[in-house]
């Protein structure tokens, strides 16, 4: 079964880098440049996981997480928030994220984070 990941980040290079890292591992990638676009896509095409930046336009990463976790259609999706500060890591977990990941990114750490978040989500599902 094809594994799909939504990467929601307004940073072109983050999207490009993550897309290539994950494509090399067999993932299908959908990019979203703001929080509402990511939410709509997740409702229409439920992915394996969503990677969301905290500083997304229109709907930030924390709000996106809260909306995903409060909707029965999307609440079981794996959510990973991309953070830039220590404080945002705590806020990501409070918002319901399964994991957070500090920017900048590195492939091995990215894959490990997604795998661990998936295991954690499956355990709670």
């Amino acid at each position: 079964m094809s594994k799909t990941i939504i990467i929601a980040d307004s940073d072109y290079y983050i999207c490009k880098l993550v897309s290539r890292f994950l494509a090399e591992e067999g993932y299908t990638i959908i990019t979203a440049s703001d929080g509402y676009e990511a939410l709509d896509t997740a409702r229409l095409t439920p992915p394996t996981a969503i990677l969301a930046d905290i500083l997304l336009p229109r709907l930030d990463g924390f709000a996106l997480c809260r909306l995903i976790k409060s909707d029965d259609a999307t609440k079981d999706l794996v959510t990973v928030v991309l953070c830039s500060t220590l404080a945002s890591e705590e806020r990501a977990l409070v918002a319901g994220a399964d994991a957070f990941m500090r920017k900048p990114l590195e492939k091995k750490r990215l894959l490990t984070t997604i795998d661990q978040a998936t295991i954690k989500r499956n355990a709670f599902a």
Partner: peptide
């Protein structure tokens, strides 16, 4: 800068 800021290096 955009590229190097995105990657952990």
């Amino acid at each position: 800068t955009g590229l190097l800021t995105a990657f952990e290096t």
